Simulated assay, not measured.
Amino acid sequence: MADTTRRSGSRRLARERIAILFARAAEFYPDNPAWSNRCVELARKIGMRHRVRIDRPLKRRFCRRCSVYLVPGANARVRIYRGRVIVTCLACGHRSRYPVGRRTS
C-alpha cells in the first residue's frame, strides 16, 4: 500500500499551509490568543505528518514546550545576555536561547 504523504506536491503544499497558519496566528492574536495557539498546533501537526521542517523564523515564534504563539512583550520576554538572545515563554517558563549573530573577522 502506497504512502499518501509522500506524493510529489504534498511537502510543498504542507510548507505553504504552515506559512499561512502562522500568518493567521499573527492576525488572530490581538483578538483571540487561543485561536493563535490552535493555528500553531495545526501547523506543527502538518509539519510532523508530512515530515517538513518549519522554517527558522517561524520556529522561533512559538514555544517548543507548550506550543503557545509567542509575541514579545505580551506573553514572551526577550533578553540579550552574553551573546545570546533568550526568549522566555511567560505561559510555561521555558527558555529558548539563540546566538545573537556570527562574528566576522
Rank of each mutant, 00 (worst) to 15 (best):
T4A: 13
T4I: 14
T5R: 01
R6N: 14
R6K: 15
R6D: 13
R7N: 11
R7L: 09
S8W: 08
S8T: 12
S8D: 13
G9P: 00
G9H: 07
S10W: 00
S10D: 06
R11Q: 11
R11T: 07
R12E: 09
R12W: 02
R12F: 09
R12Q: 13
A14R: 01
R15P: 04
R15W: 10
E16C: 11
R17I: 07
I18E: 01
I18M: 05
A19R: 09
I20A: 06
I20G: 08
I20L: 13
F22L: 01
F22R: 01
F22I: 01
A23Y: 09
R24W: 11
R24S: 12
A25W: 03
A26P: 02
A26C: 07
E27R: 08
E27Y: 09
Y29C: 03
P30D: 12
P30M: 07
N32L: 07
N32C: 04
N32Y: 02
P33C: 05
A34R: 09
A34E: 15
S36A: 12
S36H: 00
S36D: 06
N37W: 01
C39K: 06
C39R: 06
C39P: 04
C39T: 07
V40I: 05
E41W: 09
E41T: 12
L42Q: 12
L42G: 08
L42N: 05
L42E: 10
A43M: 04
I46F: 00
I46Q: 00
I46D: 00
G47F: 00
M48W: 13
M48F: 05
R49P: 02
R49L: 06
H50L: 07
R51W: 05
R51I: 08
R51N: 08
V52W: 01
V52F: 00
R53I: 11
I54M: 00
I54T: 00
R56N: 11
P57F: 01
L58C: 00
L58N: 04
K59Y: 08
K59C: 02
R60N: 05
R61Y: 09
F62Q: 00
F62V: 04
C63A: 02
R64Y: 03
R64I: 05
C66S: 04
V68C: 11
Y69L: 06
Y69P: 01
L70S: 03
L70N: 03
V71I: 05
P72F: 07
A74C: 02
N75S: 09
A76W: 02
A76L: 06
A76E: 01
R77V: 12
V78C: 10
V78M: 10
R79E: 15
R79C: 11
I80R: 14
I80C: 14
Y81K: 15
Y81T: 15
R82F: 04
R82V: 05
G83Y: 06
G83M: 02
R84N: 14
R84T: 12
R84E: 15
V85I: 10
I86L: 15
I86V: 15
I86Q: 12
V87E: 13
V87D: 08
V87A: 10
T88F: 02
C89A: 06
L90R: 14
L90N: 09
L90H: 13
C92W: 06
C92H: 05
G93M: 06
H94C: 11
H94I: 10
R95K: 15
S96W: 00
R97L: 12
R97Q: 10
R97H: 10
R97F: 05
P99C: 14
P99Q: 08
P99N: 13
V100I: 15
G101W: 04
G101N: 05
G101K: 10
R103L: 15
T104V: 13
S105G: 14
